[in-house]
Nucleic acid binder design. Sequence first.
DNA 1: GTTCATGCAAAGGTTTTGCAGATTG
DNA 2: CAATCTGCAAAACCTTTGCATGAAC
Lengths: 128, 128
Amino acid sequence: MAALKYSRQRESIKEFLMTRKDHPTADVVYENVRKIYPNISLGTVYRNLSLLSELGEIQKLSNFGGADHFDGCVTPHCHFMCKKCGQVLDLETEDLNEVAEKAVKNFSGKITECDIRFFGICPRCMNN
Amino acid sequence: MAALKYSRQRESIKEFLMTRKDHPTADVVYENVRKIYPNISLGTVYRNLSLLSELGEIQKLSNFGGADHFDGCVTPHCHFMCKKCGQVLDLETEDLNEVAEKAVKNFSGKITECDIRFFGICPRCMNN
DNA sequence: GTTCATGCAAAGGTTTTGCAGATTG
DNA sequence: CAATCTGCAAAACCTTTGCATGAAC
């Protein structure tokens, strides 16, 4: 496995994700990190987002529809997507993964992960 | 809203999906329906898969990484994706959506849907 | 004959990749 | 100096769309 070397771009991407409580797409990350490193390329952003999520330092939220979203917070929690504005929010829930895995019947494979997502209208869109 | 007209292509796409218990991607649907209608185009397959899922006659599973998968069975059930072979399978579970929605705390928006997905190793890959 | 569906091909959006040069250790 | 990372651009991938023709009603 390749050794990891420091890169200021990667550091900046991670820092940016930490400061956001929404869950930006790669493109949004790119636009923002570009304010600090104007020459950074989209390819580098994608490469580092992939790398960071393999390392478990960020979370990749695949397929809430269009582009992937990224979450700087890796403690397990559920997500909610607003069908009106497309925003992805964190949800506070009771511990669900255990419950979910217990609910599976007659399966002879091995379950290693469970992902629960909610859809609906977000608080902000409720008032419009 | 536009009136719906019969098309043998749409019929064939739906029939094909009904006979499959796995959850093929648009591309697999295309390859198979092509055996019956060699001139059908990928665009038509996509258009009809979209239409059928809007009509509620099939289910679109856009949550598993790469291409979308389609399920001819519309009764609610959970899905499992094998991390080794990429196959998407049905899972038999207790009724979970209700449990899940009750577990949400302190949320002032409105939840209309909940989607639970499982990942791991499928029975077939366990034996290899 | 009007409307909708099709086939084709081009374009759209998102993500990955090859490569030469820059950076890190 | 060797290994990794970057910027750039091209390509890959999946899906949607415009348009002229064909099928359904």
